[in-house]
Every structure is written in C-alpha cells, then in structure tokens.
Simulated scan of single mutants.
Amino acid sequence: MLTGMVVGEVLGVLLGVDANVGGVGFAMIMLIVATDWLRRKGKFPKPSEEGVLFWSAMYIPIVVAMASTQNVFKAITGGPMALLAGLGALVAGAALVPVVARIGEPAEPLPPLTEDEKQAV
C-alpha cells in the first residue's frame, strides 16, 4: 500500500497535479502480481490468501469512498480536461475487458459448498 501511494504521489508530481494519482490502484496491481507470483512458487499460506481475498473485496468500497470525497463540481467547471480524462479512462477500461477476460486458461467451476462452509457463511 505504501509503495502504491508513493508511486501515485510521484505520478501526481510528474503530471503537475497536487494529488495522489492512482496510488490505491497501483497498490492493488502490485498485490495481484505479488500474490500470483507467490502462488506459482507455492509459498502463499492459506491465511494470507484469505486476507488478500478480504482486501480484494474491500477495494471497490474504498475506491467509491475516496471518489466521493472529490470535488466533482469543481472538476467539471474546471475545464474539459477532467471530462476527457474520465471519458478516456472509461473507454480504455471498456476496451480492456475482453482482453483481460482472455487471460489464462478456462478453469473448472468451484465445487458446491459443504454443510460446514454453508454454516460458516
């Protein structure tokens, strides 16, 4: 997380923006890459995997909370650059969905939950 925040701060300085630019996103990308690497090496303990799954589930609410603190009105009235950046991110994200969906081999579906797992939920 700290590395991602530093990368976001540095990117903000390089772009001339007085803000952290994508620090949480960079942190999540690094987390995904690191966990994948550890899984492939067989060095990723089950409790750690469960912790990463928890924080992966928390990512969207955290980003929504962070976005809600932004001054949207000022961004829109500040000029077309904010709108172009938002539309650019939207188009790039939409264009990358099929690309990301093709990564890896198709996997078997998860088995049904056991009675113990159902009770734990």
Rank of each mutant, 00 (worst) to 15 (best):
V72R: 05
D116N: 10
G51M: 14
E50W: 06
Q70V: 14
F73L: 01
M30Y: 11
G25M: 11
I76H: 00
V99S: 03
P80E: 09
A92H: 01
T77N: 03
P45F: 14
K74M: 00
L2K: 06
D18M: 00
A107Q: 12
I62Y: 10
L11G: 02
A94V: 13
A101F: 02
G42C: 11
T114M: 08
Q119L: 12
P111C: 11
G23R: 08
I32S: 09
G23C: 08
G51E: 04
S68R: 06
I29R: 03
L2R: 07
G8Y: 06
L90Q: 01
S68E: 04
V7E: 04
P109F: 07
T3M: 12
V24Q: 03
L83F: 06
A94P: 01
R102V: 03
A67D: 03
I32P: 02
L113M: 15
V99Q: 03
K43P: 00
V100M: 12
E49N: 06
Q119I: 11
L84Y: 09
L113T: 04
V97Q: 09
V97T: 10
D18E: 14
A85H: 07
G78C: 01
V24E: 03
V64T: 08
M66P: 00
A82W: 01
I32V: 15
K118P: 01
P80I: 08
F44G: 03
G88W: 13
T114C: 06
E49W: 04
P112Q: 09
K41F: 04
M81E: 13
A67N: 07
N20I: 15
V52W: 08
S68A: 14
L110S: 12
S68P: 00
G104L: 11
V52C: 08
K43V: 14
I60R: 02
A67G: 09
A92K: 02
G12S: 05
G88C: 13
M1S: 09
D36S: 12
V24I: 07
K43W: 11
E9S: 10
